[in-house]
Design a protein around this nucleic acid. Structure first.
Lengths: 146, 146
DNA sequence: TATTGTTATACTCTATAACTATA
DNA sequence: TATAGTTATAGAGTATAACAATA
């Protein structure tokens, strides 16, 4: 039987996402990162990859991340070197300082999030995180298709 | 002990919200509504309210909803009449056709969402919806403050 | 003086098009 | 011809400022 009382998923998720971003903005500011710069650092993780692969992975387009990469490189958080096997491409990698600032920023952000998650009942918290990780990992086509 | 393996909440929620909106866009198109027009119809529900109250409630600002209200009024989905007690203000209400299009749109959207939720394990699904409704109902200040 | 609704304007974010250098 | 990276431009979406009517 349909539970007609629940609001639409998107009507809850989209504003919640906006609110979370607003809450986390001061944390990013304190670490000297913009949201997209942080997303780039997270997207690089341990791996080395090309700019367009990174852009696609973090949901930005390849033109928009360029000034962000410029800044990160200037700050010494990432390195950009030509791919010896394909001289059109640039291989991106985190510097040790990049890894450090990413880790300390993420620690601060997740600590804040934990305070929020602690207000949920344990079972809800676990279901929430499980479901969220499952849905976030779904390819868009699968979200749309079924 | 910290579970360092989980992605940031915002990093999962924001892209998921974007993807959901993209998935639901065709449904809105089929019903001849924009996202904000749909949000307005949902925001009116059964109640009658003023424009700025509505705007604040749906997370838009009062200047942005005006052309949307114009369209909805022209389509015959809402009525705008001056408040007899305060002639500066306009009282908004749904027409029967407005209520009908809102209901059929929401039914289509929630049916689509149900197909997605059905892919979750029952316990995760319940926890997810519980947590989401709790978090979405939190006032922003509380999200930020604690 | 403050507030509702409104219009016009500016700003930010995102997407598109066009160029270069390689392939 | 196609692709990676880049630049410049255009378009959405959003926020700010100023105005008329009313309180």
């Amino acid at each position: 039987m349909a539970d007609t009382a629940r609001p639409d998923l998107a009507a809850m998720i989209v504003p919640l996402g906006r609110a979370l971003m607003a809450v986390e903005q001061p944390v990013l500011d304190a670490h000297g990162l913009t949201m997209w710069a942080y997303a780039v650092l997270l997207g690089l993780e341990e791996s080395v990859r090309t700019q367009s692969a990174l852009a696609q992975d973090i949901g930005a387009d390849k033109t928009r991340i360029i000034p962000i990469l410029d800044d990160l490189q200037e700050q010494g958080y990432i390195e950009r070197r030509p791919d010896p096997d394909d001289r059109r491409a640039r291989l991106l990698s985190l510097t040790p300082e990049g890894r450090r600032v990413r880790d300390s920023t993420q620690a601060a952000i997740q600590a804040r999030e934990e305070r929020l998650l602690d207000r949920l009942r344990p079972a809800d918290r676990e279901g929430f995180l499980n479901a969220l990780q499952f849905l976030a990992a779904l390819p868009k086509e699968e979200l749309a298709g079924e």
